[in-house]
């Protein structure tokens, strides 16, 4: 389980996270939505300690950290509790696809080479990319790279996986295959927090949805509550914009002859 209370983070004079409180139960899939600059990514990065929070408590699994006076060994333990899937994949360019998964296992987790290879090949099979295991990341499409990124995040068997806009830099044709892999993992009762702009995907996969704006959690609830009956005006406004963006043409009356391509 993940428990965050009073989390704060500022960059210079800009407060990006203002007193964030939330919980994620084991096996739960939580989707965070919200406008750009609302602090969603920073929140994930604080959980993984890629950013150092200014204040607040973070409990993940059996590690708890008071971010104001946490020491290095605790930070390392906390970091091991989660792993991250990045918007830009960030695969190790100097390692093969398989090496991307086995290197962290052998270098830090003290796995034997054969064990690491076994884990790596199993996971690459799961994300459907085993045939590329000897290739280098540069030879893969964006979608394939992100699937490797997901396999790498799974390899260490962390308490939770954090997805930071996993499909935002993908060409539209690759989005589907990545979302499918994520949704397969979610069915396996893995604890996950996903920051995404894919609203249909969020609706389908989330056990719970959190809407963030201006460094606050504005509203949270089941997908039905948030998408169908949002209580807060900010949430309504945000979702209205999004449904307009994805072009729900049927709701607007457009004269067919005016539609040009």
């Amino acid at each position: 389980m993940i428990k965050v209370s009073g989390l704060k983070k500022a960059f210079k004079n800009t407060e990006v996270l203002k007193d964030i409180n939330f919980e994620v139960k084991d096996g739960e899939t939580v989707v965070i939505i919200g406008p750009s600059g609302s602090g969603k990514s920073t929140l994930l990065r604080c959980l993984n300690y890629l950013e150092k929070p200014d204040a607040g408590l973070i409990d993940i699994g059996d590690v708890s950290a008071n971010t104001e006076r946490v020491k290095k060994p605790t930070i390392n333990k906390l970091r091991m509790q989660t792993s991250m899937v990045f918007q830009h994949y960030n695969l190790f360019k100097n390692k093969t696809v398989l090496g991307n998964i086995t290197y962290p296992l052998t270098a830090s987790k003290k796995f034997k080479k054969e064990e690491a290879v076994e884990i790596g090949e199993k996971l690459l099979g799961q994300v459907g990319i085993l045939d590329k295991s000897k290739q280098y990341p540069v030879a893969l499409s964006g979608g394939q790279q992100q699937r490797v990124g997901i396999a790498r995040a799974l390899a260490a068997d962390p308490h939770a996986i954090l997805f930071d806009e996993p499909t935002s830099s993908l060409d539209p044709e690759w989005v589907g295959e990545v979302l499918k892999v994520i949704s397969d993992i979610s069915k396996k009762e893995k604890t996950m927090i996903i920051v995404t702009h894919e609203m249909d995907f969020a609706k389908e996969i989330a056990d719970r949805v959190i809407f963030m704006a201006d460094g606050h959690i504005v509203e949270e609830g089941t997908p039905e509550e948030i998408f169908d009956n949002p209580e807060n005006e900010r949430t309504r406004k945000f979702l209205r914009k999004y449904t307009n963006h994805s072009g729900s043409i049927e709701e607007e009356t457009i004269e067919p002859e005016l539609v040009t391509v």
Partner: peptide, 26 residues
């Protein structure tokens, strides 16, 4: 790319391991 170090650290490598295994070869 800074993302290389971040990815290395987020997979549980220490800063030292990230530099020697990932950043330096590149």
């Amino acid at each position: 790319d800074k993302g290389q170090t971040e990815a290395a650290i987020s997979t549980g490598l220490t800063y030292h391991q990230a530099v020697w295994g990932i950043v330096l070869p590149q």
